[in-house]
């Protein structure tokens, strides 16, 4: 379970998050929705500390992963346990399909032999429903895949770690409907073994795939709760306007 307390964040002088409080239960799909610029993606980048790649960002507040303060954890271990799938599919384009999935396990010494590595890559690609499409060209550079395939490759890359948490930053924003359906199916499937935090700015998607949902507006959580509750009986006027498509 992820526990975010009093999270505030600035990019330079611009305050992006003002006091975010969130509890994300284990083995659920948790959707964060809200208009562009409300700070959804930024929260994800705090949870796996990728925010530290942005030198101008300043973070205050506490985030706990299963009771451990993430800012005191080893950052490499944290990123191994908390995987991320990005809005723009971002396999490392010059590495092959196989290497893209194998890179993480190799760097983190999760496997002992080549056979084991191959097995892990195969299973990950199968879980991401990509194996059948790429099994004959595992050595092709990942940059040559289509956008939807690249995104599923990124999901396979994340799954190769067997992570506790998968963060997804608008994973279907750049995909066609067919690939969107596949990725949504994967998300629902993933929650059997892990927690999925998915950012979306499309309320129907949140309604389709998530168990819990939070609505962000200008860096503050306006409302959060079980998905049925928030969608059918919103307590806040802004939430109602958003889920009915009146605020973007």
């Amino acid at each position: 379970m992820i526990d975010i307390r009093g999270l505030r964040l600035w990019f330079g002088n611009l305050q992006v998050l003002n006091g975010v409080e969130l509890k994300i239960p284990k083995n659920t799909v948790f959707a964060m929705m809200g208009p562009s610029g409300s700070g959804k993606s930024t929260i994800l980048r705090v949870i796996n500390r990728l925010i530290e790649l942005y030198p101008e960002a300043k973070v205050e507040g506490e985030v706990y992963l299963d009771g451990n303060d993430i800012f005191k954890m080893d950052v490499v271990e944290l990123r191994r346990r908390v995987q991320m799938v990005f809005q723009i599919p971002n396999p490392i384009p010059n590495l092959s399909i196989f290497e893209n999935v194998a890179l993480g396990p190799k760097l983190n010494k999760l496997v002992k032999s080549k056979a084991e590595l191959f097995q892990l890559v195969k299973e990950s690609l199968e879980k991401a429903q990509l194996w059948d499409e790429v099994k004959d060209r595992l050595k092709t550079p990942a940059g040559k895949l289509s956008g939807g395939q690249q995104q599923r490759l990124c999901i396979a890359r994340a799954l190769a770690f067997n992570p506790e948490v998968v963060l997804m930053d608008e994973p279907t924003a750049n995909l066609d409907p067919e690939n969107t359906a596949k990725v949504e199916e994967l998300i629902v499937d993933m929650k059997k073994e892990r927690t999925v935090v998915v950012v979306t700015h499309y309320p129907p998607q949140a309604a389709r795939i998530s168990d819990y949902v939070a609505f962000l507006y200008k860096g503050t959580i306006v409302e959060s709760g079980a998905v049925r509750e928030v969608f059918t009986n919103p307590r806040h006027e802004l939430t109602e306007k958003y889920v009915t498509g009146k605020v973007y």
Binding site: Q83, N90, C154, F161
Partner: peptide
């Protein structure tokens, strides 16, 4: 995005 990909695989 590539830099984020590299760090997110625990490099």
């Amino acid at each position: 995005v590539v830099e984020e990909a590299i760090y997110s695989v625990g490099a």
